[in-house]
């Protein structure tokens, strides 16, 4: 039986996971330099031990709006072919080991941006873990 490890986090009310080997590290809120003129999703640049990392606001990326006081602050730094990118999320969860046969692709009724961003879900006890399609999530339309 195939098992996969996921680094889990919460964005708004959604419980998401990213394959753990894509995650470089998880860090607290960092000082951010905003980039005037950039897309809304791009929250800014931060200094990660001498490396400049772009931070993407997952709440805005998932079109969840930005209610007051719900700004995501935790950084999930993921590896990409073009260097690390930080995903700003609300809360960090555990690293979960899930069974491969618990996976199910998204239903047809899931439409719009979420259909591209979410590649499926794992049926856990009492809740669903949505798998974030990282490569799509970090690619922004020009």
């Amino acid at each position: 039986m195939q098992t996969n490890s996921y680094c889990t986090f919460r964005v708004g009310s959604i419980y998401l996971g990213v394959e753990v080997h894509r995650v470089q590290e998880v860090i607290r809120a960092q000082k951010m330099t905003r980039i005037p003129g950039s897309q809304e999703v791009v929250r800014g640049l931060m200094n990660l031990r001498g490396q400049i990392v772009t931070a993407l606001d997952m709440r805005r990326r998932l079109n969840l709006g930005s209610a007051e006081g719900s700004e995501p602050l935790m950084n999930v730094v993921v590896r990409t072919p073009d260097g690390p990118v930080s995903l700003l999320v609300n809360e960090i969860g555990d690293v979960l080991v899930v069974d491969g046969d618990q996976f199910e692709p998204p239903p047809e009724t899931l439409q719009g941006i979420h259909r591209e961003l979410i590649s499926g879900s794992y049926k856990l006890d009492g809740r669903l873990l949505l798998v974030l399609n990282l490569d799509v999530a970090i690619r922004l339309a020009a």
Binding site: I35, N47, T54, V85
Partner: peptide, 24 residues
């Protein structure tokens, strides 16, 4: 600049200042 902000004409790059903050 990273891929997400490469397209913006007003910036040529970024740097880290003495106090550790990033500047454009």
């Amino acid at each position: 600049l990273g891929q997400h902000i490469k397209g913006i004409a007003t910036y040529a790059g970024s740097t880290i200042m003495g106090d550790g903050t990033v500047s454009l």
